[in-house]
Design a protein around this nucleic acid. Structure first.
Length: 484
RNA sequence: AGCGGGGUAGAGCAGCCAGGAGUGCUCGUUGGGCUCAUAACCCAAAGGUCAAUGGUUCAAAUCCAUUCCCCGCUACCA
C-alpha cells in the first residue's frame, strides 16, 4: 500500500481566506481524497504562517496582541476549510511549540554544518513602525503602511549560503524534469537558476514576533525560513513516526508566485540539512475577478464563505476546478459560476440523477441484467491524476455523465417494461453509483447525497465498475438548485 | 528592461513540441427528436483569411525570422 503526502502552503495571517487560498486548498484536498480512494495512506497538511514584522503591525492596528491576532485568523482559516469540506489531517501553525523547536533545531544543524554566516542586511526601514519593508513594496521611498518616508538602514544579519547550492539544484532540475510543474514554470525557474544565486538573509534583529535564532538570541528567524520548515516539523522531524512514514512529500501545491521559494530555497535548505527532497512542486495559476486582478484596493477580493453561503461548497469546488486548467490563470465571476451550475451541475449531473431515480422508483421489478453501457475510462482518469491534472480528470468524469444521459435517450426506458427495463435501469443506476465514487474527491457532499438516494455505501476504488445494482432507491431532493 | 505565457467560429478553450484537407471540446444561436427528468436530455446545422508579414517545404495553425497587441513574473500576495 502506497503513501501520499500532500501540502498546501501555510497561509500568511495578514489576509483572511480568499478565493486564492481556497483554490490551492481545494486542489490539495482533491488529490488527498483521490489517493485515499485508491487505498493509500494519506497525510494532508495545511496551516497558517504566523510570524514576522508584518503580523506585529497588523495586530497592533487591530488593537490586539500578536498572539490574540493570529489565534483569530487561524480560526477563520479552520472555519473556512471546514465549510469547504477540506479533509486535512493536520493544521499546523508556526506558533506551535513543536514547530518552533524544530525550526531552532534545523537552524542549529545547518549552522553547525557551516551553511550560515554573519554579515549585514541592508533594506528600507520605517522608523515610526520600527520595521524593514521589502523593496518590492516600496514606492517613492514611502512606507506602504503609514505613508511616511523610509530610509536605507543596515543591521547585523545571518545569511544562509544559498549560492553554494546552485549546482546541486541544477542537478535536481536536470534529473527530475517534473520536479516543478508545469513545464513553463520549470523553464522559468531554471532560467533564473542559470544566472546567479544570492545568499539569503535569514534573521531579523528588528522583528520581535518570531522564532529566536539560537546562535544569536537577539535575532529572530526570517519568516520564510521559518515557514518552509513546516512541511517537516508537522511530521515531527527528525524522529517522529510521521516523518519516517510520509517524508518526502509527494507534492507541494503552491501558487505560481511562490514557486521560487518551493523549488529553489526550500530544496536548498533540505540539501543543507541533508534531508531528502520533495518529489514535486505543483505551481498553479491565479484567479482574476471579473477580468481584473484581485486586490484589496479594488475591493474585489472574493470571500469563499460568501460564495458558499449563497451557492454551495460543492458548486464552488466544482467551478474552481472545472473553469480553468490549474496551470493557467483564469477569471472568476458570478456569471460564469451560475452558468456552470445551471448548465452542468443541474442540467448534466442533477438531471441525470433525477430522471433515473424517477424511473427506478416507479419500477417494481428486478433491477438486473447485462451491462451494455461503456464504463468510465478509469485508466485515463488515473493517469490524469498522476500528472496532477485534476481539471482533465473532472472533464473525463463529465464525459461519462454525458454518455449516460445519451444512453438513456437512446434506450428510451420510459417506453420499456419488464426485464428489458430492469436491464436499462441497472446500467443507469450502476453508472450513477460509479459517478458518485468518481465525484467523491471533487464534490464530497454531493457524492454522499447521491449515495443516500441510491441507498448504497461503496466508496472503494475497486467499486468503480459497472456491475449489478444492489442498493435501494429512494428519490430525494434535487442535488443542485438552478439560479436565475 | 530582463524572463515567461498568450493572440484559433459570437464567448471561453484544446490542437502546435514529433508539419499532412480548419480537426475537436464547452457555452451561445438556429432547426429537429424525445417527453423519464430541474423548460431538462439527445441529434443536426450555421459560424473561422488559425494576430500580421516574410521564409523553409510537395504540404504550415503547427517549423524559422520579423512586427503588432494582451497578460504574468522579477525574490514576504494562492
Amino acid at each position: 500500500m502506497g503513501k501520499f503526502y500532500v501540502t498546501t502552503p501555510i497561509y500568511y495571517v495578514t489576509a483572511k481566506p480568499h478565493i486564492g487560498h481556497a483554490y490551492t486548498t481545494v486542489i490539495a484536498d482533491i488529490l488527498a481524497r483521490w489517493h485515499r480512494l485508491k487505498g493509500e495512506k494519506v497525510f494532508f497538511l495545511t496551516g497558517t504562517d504566523e510570524h514576522g514584522g508584518k503580523v506585529e503591525k497588523y495586530a497592533a492596528d487591530a488593537g490586539k496582541s500578536p498572539k490574540e491576532f493570529v489565534d483569530d485568523v487561524a480560526n477563520s482559516y479552520k472555519f473556512a476549510w471546514d465549510s469547504l469540506n477540506i479533509s486535512y489531517d493536520k493544521f499546523i501553525r508556526t506558533t506551535d511549540k513543536e514547530h518552533e523547536v524544530a525550526v531552532q533545531r534545523f537552524a542549529n544543524l545547518i549552522w553547525d554544518n557551516g551553511d550560515i554566516y554573519k554579515s549585514k542586511y541592508e533594506g528600507w526601514y520605517c522608523l515610526p513602525d520600527e520595521t524593514f519593508i521589502p523593496d518590492s513594496e516600496i514606492t517613492d521611498e514611502k512606507c506602504p503602511y503609514c505613508g511616511r518616508p523610509v530610509q536605507r538602514l543596515q543591521e547585523d544579519a545571518f545569511f544562509f549560503s544559498l549560492s553554494r547550492y546552485r549546482e546541486p539544484l541544477l542537478r535536481v532540475f536536470d534529473e527530475n524534469k517534473t520536479f516543478l510543474m508545469p513545464k513553463s514554470r520549470y523553464n522559468e525557474i531554471l532560467n533564473r537558476l542559470n544566472d546567479e544565486l544570492k545568499d539569503l538573509d535569514i534573521t531579523r534583529k528588528s522583528v520581535k514576533w518570531g522564532i529566536q535564532f539560537p546562535p544569536s538570541p537577539d535575532h529572530t528567524i526570517y519568516v520564510w525560513f521559518d515557514a518552509l520548515l513546516n512541511y517537516i516539523s508537522a511530521l515531527g522531524w527528525p524522529d517522529g513516526e510521521n516523518f519516517k512514514e510520509f517524508w518526502p512529500a509527494d507534492v507541494h501545491v503552491v501558487g505560481k508566485e511562490i514557486a521560487w521559494f518551493h523549488s529553489v530555497i526550500w530544496p536548498a535548505m533540505l540539501l543543507a540539512g541533508d534531508i531528502s527532497l520533495p518529489k514535486a512542486v505543483l505551481s498553479h495559476g491565479w484567479w482574476t475577478v471579473d477580468g481584473k486582478k484581485m486586490s484589496k484596493s479594488l475591493g474585489n477580493v472574493v470571500d469563499p464563505m460568501d460564495i458558499i453561503k449563497r451557492y454551495s461548497e460543492d458548486a464552488f469546488r466544482y467551478f474552481l476546478i472545472k473553469e480553468k486548467p490549474i496551470w493557467e490563470d483564469g477569471d472568476f465571476s458570478e456569471k460564469a459560476l451560475v452558468s456552470r451550475i445551471n448548465g452542468e451541475l443541474v442540467a448534466d449531473l442533477g438531471n441525470l440523477v433525477s430522471r433515473v431515480l424517477t424511473l427506478a422508483s416507479r419500477y417494481k421489478g428486478e433491477i438486473a441484467g447485462d451491462i451494455d453501457l461503456e464504463n468510465a475510462d478509469i485508466d485515463k482518469i488515473s493517469s490524469l491524476f498522476d500528472s496532477f491534472d485534476v481539471t482533465g480528470a473532472l472533464e473525463e468524469v463529465w464525459k461519462f455523465i454525458r454518455s449516460v444521459n445519451k444512453y438513456i435517450n437512446d434506450k428510451e426506458p420510459w417506453k420499456l417494461e419488464g426485464a428489458e427495463l430492469g436491464r436499462v435501469l441497472n446500467n443507469s443506476l450502476e453508472a450513477i453509483r460509479v459517478i458518485a465514487i468518481l465525484l467523491e474527491p471533487f464534490m464530497p457532499a454531493s457524492a454522499v447525497k447521491i449515495r443516500e438516494q441510491l441507498g448504497v455505501r461503496e466508496t472503494k476504488f475497486s467499486d468503480i465498475k459497472l456491475s449489478t445494482f444492489n442498493g435501494s432507491v429512494k428519490r430525494g431532493e434535487n442535488l443542485f438548485k438552478k439560479y436565475d
